[in-house]
């Protein structure tokens, strides 16, 4: 199900996703319509624009929060124009599963978009690489991230985006064992509790990165 007030963008996205094998249940132009359509026929994933009528501020985010409260089985992908940690975290933190925050630019990269929607449908978390890059790149006074190797930083970035160990190993062309070793090292360096569950891991990393020190 797609919600965006720009008809052109909505239609384009719908045709691209249909071509990629998804079934687009509905296209709507505002949050109210979205809510009634989700209620009537809950989709696997709702793709929502942050800014929608009437106020063009954060209707999309509010709608996403409502959907996730009322329809836990429906994943939400929020498409945004803003590289803002606050939006991404506020979406994910409330219920760390089946949610994603991507820049609208990603519609250009169909494979990534399709992959993200599938992961969200499967209950995973997805965070836009540019948001993670901003978090990782933040200047800190005593920066434990500085002590990470370049490869470890790449692994950390992938992890924060919500990728699984196998996904990371295929993106970075590493064996899964190497990825696991890197992750153990990162958790030790950043003093994070080791957890096997992917979504908890994403949240822990994001919280660590965005913490005020």
């Amino acid at each position: 199900m797609l919600a965006d007030d720009s008809v052109l963008f909505r239609e384009g996205l719908a045709s691209v996703l249909s071509a990629a094998g998804f079934e687009v249940l509905a296209q709507v132009g505002d949050a109210d319509e979205l809510m009634s359509r989700v209620k009537a026929d809950p989709p696997d994933v709702a793709v929502v624009d942050v800014r929608m009528p009437p106020t063009h501020t954060t209707e999309g985010l509010l709608a996403a929060a409502t959907i996730r409260r009322d329809h836990p089985q429906t994943g939400v992908l929020v498409l945004s124009q803003y590289v803002e940690t606050h939006y991404a975290l506020s979406l994910i933190e409330e219920a760390p599963h089946g949610a994603g925050y991507l820049l609208k630019d990603r519609v250009d990269d169909l494979d990534e978009l399709v992959d993200a929607i599938r992961r969200i449908a499967a209950g995973g978390l997805v965070v836009d690489p540019s948001v993670i890059a901003q978090l990782v790149g933040r200047r800190r006074i005593r920066d434990p991230i500085e002590s990470l190797s370049e490869r470890e930083r790449a692994v950390l970035t992938c992890m924060a985006q919500g990728r699984s160990n196998s996904a990371i190993s295929s993106v970075l062309f590493l064996s899964e064992k190497t990825v696991e070793a890197h992750i153990r090292n990162i958790f030790t360096r950043l003093d994070l509790p080791v957890t096997g569950e992917d979504n908890r891991r994403v949240l822990a990393v994001l919280r660590h990165l965005s913490a005020e020190r």
Binding site: E84, T85, H86, Q134, L135, G137, R138, R139, S210, E212
Partner: peptide, 8 residues
Amino acid sequence: RSLAERAA
């Protein structure tokens, strides 16, 4: 927070 993340 966003400003701090972007600052040089």
